[in-house]
Amino acid sequence: MDPQMQSGSMQAVLSVITSSIADERSDELFYEYLISVAPTEQEKRVIESIRDDERKHRRMLRQLYTQLTGRQPAPGLGEQEEFKRPNSYLEGIEQALMGELKAFEKYRGVYLALPDIYKPVLFEIMTDEMKHANYYNWLYAKNK
């Protein structure tokens, strides 16, 4: 667990949520690129479903931030995000897989620090991240 999160500090939770809003946008852009270079329609559809989940997560995190603070996150948060283009489709799939696993770990820390009423939101995001990691594992094995 992230040392910041061990304290259970709401400020740490809000900081992670804010950075996660931007991260989800960055992931969305990265996955748009992977969709554009995916070798089959089936792979494009799988990555499109993951991209759509990232968009959903971003909305959910913005809503959670608003519920926790009583105010909207900064306008345009994550809108200027960019990504580093991988050297190959397979490298991109590997990078996406590792990113999904790291996101799960980050969200686990937030989940443990949140009041129970908000935990279902993080549970949905966390289970989606594990589903995405499984899809990227499949895509990696298929293209290796």
Rank of each mutant, 00 (worst) to 15 (best):
P39A: 04
D116Y: 10
I17Y: 06
E100G: 07
L114C: 09
K44W: 05
K56P: 03
R55A: 02
R59I: 07
A96R: 07
E54K: 11
I17H: 05
G8L: 08
S88V: 09
L34W: 15
Q6I: 09
I35W: 01
A96S: 14
S36V: 13
F83Q: 07
E79H: 05
E48L: 06
Y89S: 03
Q80W: 07
T40C: 04
Y33E: 00
R25N: 15
P73G: 03
D2P: 05
I35D: 00
Y65T: 09
R51T: 05
G99L: 03
Q80A: 14
T66I: 15
G109Y: 02
L101F: 07
K106D: 12
K84G: 04
M98Q: 12
I47S: 01
Y31G: 00
R71Y: 11
D116P: 15
I35G: 00
S36I: 11
E105D: 12
M98G: 08
Q80L: 14
L61V: 05
G78F: 14
K56D: 06
V16A: 06
R62I: 04
P3Y: 09
R71C: 14
D53Y: 09
Q11N: 09
I21G: 03
G99H: 06
S20V: 08
V110A: 02
E48F: 03
S20F: 05
A38N: 03
D116W: 11
E32T: 04
K102E: 11
I17R: 02
R62L: 07
A22L: 01
S49H: 14
P115Q: 11
